[in-house]
């Protein structure tokens, strides 16, 4: 069976590979998405200090580190069985709102946006920032 491979998948965070199998008529028989990466946070965070988790786990994804930082922080709240004071809650929310703005700008101008501006049919040389 003929296979078409897209490697790597681009304009998103992380590594990905798509293999599409075509049947004799040239139609798609099946397609597979593979993630050819793993760093093993699940293992190497074991044995580290709890209070280091927001800092370590924010490196799961450098495109959305604030989300991971926030999740790690909330896990610490639960582990220490504490509720943050209102000022801390507000600071966290402010940080997250700032991050949402930052992330949307990033996605619009660099990652997904070019698909919508030049369209999916545009040649791939044109589908990125700075060429349009």
């Amino acid at each position: 069976m003929k296979a078409v491979t897209i490697n790597p998948i681009t304009r998103l965070e992380g590594h990905g590979k798509i293999t599409i199998f075509l049947n004799e008529q040239g139609n798609v028989e099946n397609a597979y998405l593979q993630i050819p990466e793993l760093r093993g946070f699940e293992r190497f965070c074991v044995g580290r200090k709890a209070e280091d988790m927001p800092q370590l786990t924010s490196r799961i994804c450098g495109v959305c580190p604030v989300a991971h930082h926030y999740a790690g922080t909330k896990a610490l709240d639960a582990a220490f069985n504490v509720e943050p004071p209102s000022a801390a809650e507000k600071l966290r929310e402010l940080m997250y709102c700032g991050y949402i703005i930052y992330d949307h700008i990033l996605h619009f101008f660099y990652l997904g946006g070019p698909d919508f501006i030049v369209g999916p049919e545009a040649p791939r040389e044109k589908k990125h920032f700075g060429r349009n």
Partner: peptide
């Protein structure tokens, strides 16, 4: 992302250089 965090300076970068491979921002395989 830290490269993109140079903000509008990226426009100066593309003045002096063509980026020929950059999976996070371009479709080159």
């Amino acid at each position: 992302i830290s490269v993109l965090d140079i903000n509008e300076k990226i426009l100066e970068v593309v003045q002096v250089a063509d980026i020929v491979f950059w999976p996070v921002a371009m479709d080159i395989k």
